[in-house]
Nucleic acid binder design. Structure first.
Ligand SMILES: [Mn+2]
Ligand SMILES: [Mn+2]
Ligand SMILES: [Zn+2]
Ligand SMILES: [Zn+2]
Lengths: 133, 133
DNA sequence: TATCTAACTTGTAATGGTTACAAATATGTA
DNA sequence: TACATATTTGTAACCATTACAAGTTAGATA
């Protein structure tokens, strides 16, 4: 059982009830949810919850390294608890997003961990040769 | 000199003035522009141009395989003429997006074609093992 | 050439995810 | 308790994109 209050303190985040519940939800539900999905799930427990709080909290968690923000195939931003580098696989039929733990070499495959790969999306981010130094 | 009118016909797209100009712009300006960037550039030539036409045209071109739509790091969709599979590198300082023609094995590198790589974004799309057959 | 029809373009309004902002509330300390 | 600060809330604004209906164009036909 993870002590989410302590975990937030360690990251320099004051552990409010809302923040603890949001982090707990992300840890227990590895579904790469959108901010709205987090809100819809938690507003039942916390009827006074504001969507703005969810957005602000997820952004703060990301900045402090507690969560990772993903830019997947659609324009919604999704969040996940797993901060280890890994590959995402999205099913075009059911919409589920699977974590792929294999190394990047797998990109040459048309099939990976039982999934049929139709599209590869590879994006890098950094500082270009013109902007270095 | 590419015959854009002919190219559109070959893809089953009626070659209107707007469509030819949009395709021509994408071929000549390899800057991975947004729909709005295309609109801003062409509305000077075609003052009556509608942004809806740009959106509709880019979507049609993508569906017919004339262009490729990208989901990069931000939520804007960008489009490009190059339909060959390749990797994108975005500079976090100047915002430019570079095409990387090297194969996917490069992902193990921290530096590629002179650019300093800080983040790798790898996303796959297809049909998951539960949805096959 | 004139007419017709379907396709294409345009402009405006609506949508949906996200952010800005100010007021209300809660928290921790003196 | 009283105060200062941090947090939460609700509303409005933002912006890329889409829906929709009306206007325009262009190719086919007579
Ligand atoms: Mn993941
Ligand atoms: Mn490219
Ligand atoms: Zn740069
Ligand atoms: Zn599936």
């Amino acid at each position: 059982m993870i002590d989410f209050k302590e975990l937030l303190k360690e990251h320099g985040i004051a552990p409010s009830i809302q923040r603890i519940k949001i982090l707990e939800f992300l840890e227990k539900n590895r579904i790469h949810p959108t901010a709205d999905m987090v809100y819809q799930a938690l507003v039942q427990e916390i009827p006074t919850l504001s969507k703005t709080t969810v957005y602000n909290t997820l952004k703060a968690f990301t900045e402090k390294g507690v969560l990772v923000a993903l830019s997947l195939f659609e324009n919604e931003v999704r969040y996940e608890y797993n901060t280890e580098p890994h590959i995402h696989f999205k099913c075009i039929k059911c919409g589920k997003i699977y974590d792929i733990s294999k190394a990047f070499e797998c990109l040459n495959n048309k099939e990976i961990e039982g999934h049929k790969v139709l599209e590869h999306h590879v994006n890098l981010k950094g500082i270009c040769k013109n902007c270095r130094d």
